[in-house]
Amino acid sequence: LDPCYDDTGAARRCIPEFINAAFGKEVMVSSVCGRPPSRSCSVVERGDDRPSVRTCQICDAADPRRAHPASYLTDLNSAHNLTCWQSENLNTSPYNVTLTLSLGKKFEITYVSLQFCSPRPESLAIYKSMDYGKTWMPYQFYSSQCRRMYNRPNKATITKQNEQEALCTDGHTDLYPLSGGLIAFSTLDGRPSGKDFDNSPVLQDWVTVTDIRVVFNRPQLPRELGLGAGGSNSDDPASVTSTLATYFYAVGDFQVGGRCKCNGHASRCLKDKEGKLVCDCKHNTEGPECDRCKPFHYDRPWQRANAREANECLPCNCNLHARRCRFNMELYKLSGRKSGGVCMNCRHNTAGRHCHYCKEGFYRDMARPITHRRACKACDCHPVGAAGKTCNQTTGQCPCKDGVTGITCNRCAKGYQQSRSPVAPCIKIP
């Protein structure tokens, strides 16, 4: 049972399963604690109106029990055994730390989420790339000071005119919880065309990513911590570092939820011979994202599948006389958007956009179907008796000189006899 075809064998839209595309993938981080071993302290809530306490840990990259490597970002997220990546201590400004995740293929993503082991950053930015990290564009910003940090308004309104615009919000930037806080960015939430995604190339483009980059720009600052004796009005976290807590970013789970992008023409993605993830394309499509028609399937332009139409690529009709064809938009429009394929290099002495008639110098053998390789026979016009080499493509009749007859013009007509002149091979009998 192939999800790309129904019971009758007709093509229908198919999509790969929804996954956490980040799971098990390597994340490049600009900072990781433990080289050399370092001590980091954090404030832990205890609940029940009991005061928060300060706890300190050693991070040692060489000791697996005390290491917090980047691989912990995308490993199995278990509440019983929470593993966290942790940055170096942030002693001086700037406090930028970057996480870069390469998906290795285009995905259509629905959300990006981060579960923190430290307090959530005060400012962070999410960027996306659609070209494997060559260029980056903003995807979403979080900050309690959107204008100051990112020069964007807080919670701007999204309309149909700016659906591909990154927003900034001050949500999710609260200090509390001190650990376990979540930042979740939903790519379609609040975007007007999200309800009509099939018909919105803009949003289809918006959710397409090959790489995700998260930049933590600033941790919660001391004055926002409000921790009494250890707090300070300074903008510099270092002022409380020595007395209460060190500042670092720590994340237990980094998820990117979405589907391998196959444009509705594959139900799964597989690894190719080189280990690259590619769509298992159906509907006569090919390419990493099933983003083009297979050779010889150019009778109509490639299109993404949707709920109503599979839009499969259709083969050109060349009557078995050509192996290649091309698409012609003008012919396609003239046909009422039905057929635009033009056969190339028609063989077996055929011609025409569908190799559906005989080329000059040949005529159709009506005893055979047009698909037969000998459907076209040579005219075989007589070199002297015929006035040319091209015969009637239907009957095979060559154009005869005066007084000459026969399909190939090889005999003198009744009342004529052969002369010695090749120019007038038959002359009237006196």
Partner: peptide, 24 residues
Amino acid sequence: EVMPTLDMALFDWTDYEDMKPVDT
């Protein structure tokens, strides 16, 4: 009545060498 096919050997090619088929 079926007329005989044209006999290439009967033609005089003297003034029409360029028209003469190769195998004549």
